[in-house]
Every structure is written in C-alpha cells, then in structure tokens.
Amino acid sequence: MSALDPSVTRPRPKHLNLVKIKQPLPAIVSILHRASGAAMFLFGIPLLLVLTNASLASPETYASLKEILGSPLVKLILLGFGWAYLHHFCAGIRFLLLDLHWGVGLQAARQSSRAVLIVSLALTVILGVRLW
C-alpha cells in the first residue's frame, strides 16, 4: 500500500554503479568473502593438495618442497592464500554469528565487519613473520 503512496515515493537510482556508490564495510567484507572463496576453489585447493602431497610423499619431495618454500616469491604467494583463508575464516564466523541473530544491528554489524578485516590482517601479519 505504502509503495503506491506518492508521499513516500522518491527518485531511486535506476542503475547501481558499483564503482560510483560507496560500499559499506559489511559489503566489502562480504565481497572479499566471496572473492577469497572463489580464489581458494580455483587455486587454493589444488595448491593445498600439491603441498600436502610433496610434504608427505618422500624425504626427497619434502626436501625439495622446503627449498622451493625458501623463495620470497613463493612465500608471498602462500601469504596471499593465507590471507584468503584467514579472511574467509573470520568473515565466516561473523556470518555464523549473524545466523544466530548476534550483532545484526547496524552499528554492531559495522563494528564486526571492521573487526573481521583487522583480525584477519593481523593474523596474516603474524603468519608472514612466521614464514620469514
């Protein structure tokens, strides 16, 4: 009924330009959750299996893996996937809590989004320090 009421109709954007509109923090966390998930499906899972295989197959493959992991470029790539996993992990826990109706208010949702970004980045930094 209210949708037909001229007093509440106001001009609405006909096209949502993703570049022009300002993304709220929860939207950024959400799209990063999807992007990190897609990256882990495409590259992360096969990489995880290759690494697990090399680390367990024989002492020789273990030694050559250790040598390859010494390269800074490889460390940087691994750190990238480390961030993807940690962000997906933290954002996922946030979504689980939202499912339980925890922190669904606007202010709480913004704060938890910020916490997800900060905690996952902080854990990635710790991982980076351990890798180097």
Binding site: F41, P46, L49, N53, L56, S58
Partner: peptide
C-alpha cells in the same frame, strides 16, 4: 566441471593420505 574437479580432488586426497609410507 566444478563437481568433477572436486571428485578428482577427493580421489587425490585419498591417494595422498593412504599412500604415506
């Protein structure tokens, strides 16, 4: 394609884990 990849990965995971000597 995604489903086939995941079935392939499942077989690979078994091969890796139960191939440990």
């Amino acid at each position: 394609l995604a489903a086939l990849a995941l079935v392939f990965y499942t077989g690979w995971a078994i091969h890796i884990l139960w191939g440990i000597k």
